[in-house]
Design a protein around this nucleic acid. Structure first.
Lengths: 140, 140
DNA sequence: GTAACTGCAAAATGTTTGCAACGAT
DNA sequence: ATCGTTGCAAACATTTTGCAGTTAC
């Protein structure tokens, strides 16, 4: 199933409207295929002489996160980082403190342990991430 | 070995001075035995008619984190959360989105997997945390 | 036609910084 | 005496919000 349809259904369910801005933002996010910030989005729109206000970007991202199409990472420094995640496998992150590079990796055993830990504590997880901050091969 | 001594050594090594404020903040942090925010600290000092400025709290926390005595968690919402971690085993966090409760747990196998992942990618980790956001037993 | 949405600018939030007075060494 | 430290207030960076005009339904 397509991300655009998921979003349409989400909007309908919440009695929200499908506007040009919301469609444009989702399309941009899907075309990015990597991590992005609110600034990144705004810059890309401006380059194409298509402006969407900062407020609308923030407001729409809240909905995209809520609909499950986008994941928000809080790395603590500077702005929040987002990524389109529909149909992508859940993955973990290593972030280089020097060059900012983000290394993604998947580990099924780690996934399994996380699920087991939640089950043992009757915790219903809605979002989880492992973040490893440090220095990558080139920067160490 | 004692946290106060570790901090003293750290300060000396960095050519920083051991002031009343720094000693007071570390003592408070150690006596807390749980997660805290900058606001929490300021409030506790004010209650005891002992004021330490916000700027000094922020500046001292940077040193405490750097010295390894305190860990900073970026949960993305609102302010940063800190915890005294000297002599505590590294642990993971589950955070309840409704009641704010923080459940800590340790899993050696998970630790091992994290270390292996870093080794495989020649990544030197300085800080890593697994954060699971969701709903705890009482709030689900 | 109604209620939601947008852009703007202002406000709010959390953190950092410049500076003059102060204090540890 | 020197140079790091403090508190204050101002600056900063990011995100949120109030409002008046606009648009989807």
């Amino acid at each position: 199933m397509d991300g655009a349809i998921i979003f349409r259904q989400y909007l309908k369910r919440k009695n929200l409207r499908e506007t040009v801005e919301r469609r444009t933002i989702l399309a941009e996010v899907r075309s990015l295929h990597k991590h992005f910030t609110v600034d990144d989005l705004q810059f890309r729109f401006r380059k194409r002489r298509r402006t969407v206000s900062r407020a609308t970007l923030y407001r729409t991202l809240i909905h995209l996160v809520e609909s499950g199409l986008v994941r928000k990472l809080d790395l603590g420094q500077r702005e929040a980082i987002f990524e389109y995640q529909f149909n992508h496998a859940h993955h973990e992150h290593m972030i280089c403190l020097k060059c900012g590079k983000v290394i993604e990796f998947t580990n099924h055993e780690m996934e399994r342990l996380q699920e087991a830990a939640c089950r043992a504590r009757r915790f219903r997880a809605v979002r989880h991430y492992l973040q490893i901050l440090g220095y990558c091969r080139g920067c160490r």
